[in-house]
C-alpha cells in the first residue's frame, strides 16, 4: 500500500516537473517563419496579385 502510494506520488511529481520543463512546440510565427495563407483558386490568386502588386507562387502537386 505504502509502495503504491509512493509510486503514484512520484509519478505526479514527475508529471508536474515535466509540464514545467517541456515547452510546447513553437508556432511558425515564434520561429520567425511567417505562416502562409495558401489560396486554392488560381483566379483568386491572380486577383489578389493584381490588387497587391505581388508576384504569384503557384504550386501544383
Amino acid at each position: 500500500m505504502r509502495t503504491t502510494l509512493g509510486v503514484m506520488l512520484l509519478l505526479v511529481l514527475l508529471g508536474a516537473a515535466l509540464s514545467h520543463t517541456v515547452a510546447p512546440p513553437a508556432t511558425a510565427e515564434e520561429r520567425g517563419t511567417p505562416s502562409i495563407d495558401w489560396l486554392l483558386d488560381l483566379d483568386e490568386a491572380r486577383a489578389k496579385a493584381r490588387e497587391t502588386g505581388r508576384p504569384i507562387l503557384a504550386v501544383f502537386r
Partner: peptide, 25 residues
C-alpha cells in the same frame, strides 16, 4: 518558408478548370 512570404501563394491539387495555356509546365 520566409522566402515565400512576399508572394501570393496558391496550391493546386486538381487540374480541373486550370487554364493550361496560362499555367503551362
Amino acid at each position: 518558408m520566409k522566402a515565400a512570404a512576399p508572394y501570393v501563394c496558391a496550391r493546386i491539387t486538381n487540374m480541373k478548370g486550370v487554364d493550361i495555356h496560362t499555367f503551362d509546365f
